[in-house]
Amino acid sequence: MWWLLVITFLLSSLQLTLVPFVFVSGTMIDLVLVFVMSWAMLKKGSSALWLAFLAGLVLNQYSALHMGFLPLFYVVIAYLATLVSSDMIDNNWLLAVVLGFTLSGLFELLVLLSFWFGGHNLFTLDYLSQIVLVRVLLNTTFMLLLFPVLRALNSNLNQRHKALLP
């Protein structure tokens, strides 16, 4: 499971140190969310759930959100993503992108709700249209790029694994 920890720290570090300086005004991609969703759709197993939990825990340490909320949201999104059958995605990978848009939107709403409970009222039309919607669209666009790469990598690794079996 060492690779899971490596991916967790790599993604969290990039999300915390690089992404905020590349994107401006809060409209930044959520690298961890996109990776967790793609990973959960492709791998199905518990690794996506662990990745979601661990990365959420690390990010939560550096967030103003109440401790525990971020891993919770990431785990919920990862579980929902595992519900989609891999055959459906294999036949039409655009479905994965549509699901990415929906799940990303759900995640943003959960974050907004938790900020609201924490006393930060961000439920304004301007905020929803200029920050949340832009962020969901950015996540979906990034998923368009990342998902095919991960899918190709996954099938390649599966084939090698099968070839190694007696």
Partner: peptide, 21 residues
């Protein structure tokens, strides 16, 4: 199964939220 694992992790998160509270 996957659902059980997700429920286990969700409960763990709720426990962390409780600890913070």
């Amino acid at each position: 199964n996957n659902f059980g694992k997700a429920v286990f992790l969700v409960l763990l998160c709720i426990f962390i939220i409780f600890l913070t509270q």
